[in-house]
Amino acid sequence: MIGVLALQGNFSSHVKVLGLLGHNSKLVKSPKDLDDIDGLIIPGGESTTMTKLINRDKKFLKSIQLFSKNHPILGTCAGLILMSKDSFDSKVINLGIIDIESTRNAYGRQVHSFDTELSLKHVSNNDSFKASFIRAPKISKVGKNVEVICTHNDLPVAIKDGMHVATTFHPELKNETIIHRLCFGDK
């Protein structure tokens, strides 16, 4: 069972993609919802809003950090920002689950959002997949044990840090399963 953080944002598309891979899923709105899940997705949405709602419960931040010690977490867009070590913005909390630094809305406002095709590095079956960059962040610094698994115009756009995966783009908006499979496997 994979949990999807459902405080605000596009959690429904992640539920759909998990279903395509045969995973059961449940929405996570409070720390106790983490008890019976094997992995977690932090979806896209507004990182400031999610910060506010995570901070409602003093235990929530610590619970997610503790959960991350033994379980994989996937973050897309705002999820990547929250998982980062730092995003240099006092309005946003950083869970420090992955050893990267990130910058919010680094491509500009919505008129600069775009769709493109990407492919994963070092994957033998190197099929391309579709991805949406919606007011996307950029990864500004990558820690030494972090693997950059995908680039776009020479910039890192997806990383793997231990069992955790994070992307600046949205594979779920395109019903792509490749990133979710990388993080949680097939059922």
Partner: peptide
């Protein structure tokens, strides 16, 4: 689809009318 993408990201949220910078900051 890119345009609908932003609408998808606003789900489960609140969009607030504001008339000045002060209100916008309170909303955020």
């Amino acid at each position: 689809k890119v345009k609908v993408g932003l609408a998808e990201m606003l789900k489960g949220g609140v969009i607030m009318d504001v008339t000045n910078v002060e209100q916008a900051k309170i909303a955020e």
